[in-house]
Design a protein around this nucleic acid. Sequence first.
DNA 1: TATCAACGTGTAATAAGTACACAAAGATTA
DNA 2: TAATCTTTGTGTACTTATTACACGTTGATA
Lengths: 231, 231
Amino acid sequence: MCAETLNHLKTAEAEKASHLEFFNIGVSVDCVIFGFENKELKVLLIKSDLEEFSGKWSLLGDLIDPHEDLDTAPYRVLKQRTGLDNVFLQQVGSFGNVNRHPSGRVITTAYYSLINIRNHHLKISDNEVHWHAVDDIKELAFDHRKIMNTCLKRLQGQIMEEPVVFNLLPEKFSLRELQDLYQSILRTKLDRRNFRKKISLKSWLEDLDEMENDVPHRPGRLYKVKKMEKL
Amino acid sequence: MCAETLNHLKTAEAEKASHLEFFNIGVSVDCVIFGFENKELKVLLIKSDLEEFSGKWSLLGDLIDPHEDLDTAPYRVLKQRTGLDNVFLQQVGSFGNVNRHPSGRVITTAYYSLINIRNHHLKISDNEVHWHAVDDIKELAFDHRKIMNTCLKRLQGQIMEEPVVFNLLPEKFSLRELQDLYQSILRTKLDRRNFRKKISLKSWLEDLDEMENDVPHRPGRLYKVKKMEKL
DNA sequence: TATCAACGTGTAATAAGTACACAAAGATTA
DNA sequence: TAATCTTTGTGTACTTATTACACGTTGATA
């Protein structure tokens, strides 16, 4: 039983496997890892090695270890599977339909993560892990498409309220890059002047008094996000 | 192992118990059931029968059955434990710290529910189940206080956006009652004229052209919530 | 030096949020 | 039956946020 398990276990200790037959219900975490590159919102996916889903892509996940907190499991998964560390992660919801998994009962808790593709360059370990433009993703293994959609909606609802998107950008960025990012997440065009006004109202940014120097046109000012204790 | 389990299992078949020793990780649901009475927001709690928590109150919950969907489990719990049916329920989050449960590893998914205390009168089954004013609740068993707070925050964030609070009121209600409800959820006083304006802007209500007739003062108009497919 | 692409900026109109006061309806009671 | 009490129902002026919209400037490139 527990096939997602098999998928997840590739990197886990074999010892775990001996426990599997005793699970009535498996408990896993899955990560929807967003990145931003080339004006596109992307998600990190791994090839499912489950025969039911041969050729399909799936989220990065793993069974949780009985000795780790639920909310720390996704950090471990990211670290183990991609080398990513120190990332933004947030719990989104749990998915536990009886038949969500073809070969056993597995309840999964989904997290979304925002990372800067260029900073954290993946040391891709054992499996085929790739970035996919969100717009190009059609079908995913398991109920991962539904999970991804739920996480995307959460992200969309959050970006105007809280300064989370900066996890997707390099330390220094222009307002143009920021707007492109918002547009790719919200799937809309935004008016440039109104966008700048709105962002500046939030006081999230610190003006670096520096300019872009690698663009083939008039360079824009560079900003970074303010560090703050609580906001 | 699995003491929350024991708590939860009181009403479950004994057969389940024999499986417990095989769980590496228990999976449960817990319900934060809100009601509104006497201008106070209340939560339905049950006396914990776990010795570690003797005398403490806890949320209603149960282990999930391997053959039921995660999201249907809380409906079952409510039905079994209180007779409540056809209620508003929404998943809020999952809690799975290693030590959240004194006698075993149990991961729980929390749901919040909104019910009309007077309509659904509980057929309280086996345990001591009581309504508690949210303001009076100090300590709860397990991490249930944290779970309750999380659910309350979710509720607070949702009531100005979506027409959910009507699940807490009788079919016909006055704007005064509605305002009292908002005030008890948000723990603030609201200006009457501004509140009415804001609510009417949302077009959630239908004017019944009826008046209160059981109040010792000038009666107010009665309203009901509009039925709508999608809003 | 002409062209191109993106930068940086402001105003007018509309919509939403806030603060605030008074007359009228029933119920109660003197 | 008149006075009093509690709660209802309503509107305006002020401030703040949202939207729609255009032009001159900068630096790179041909």
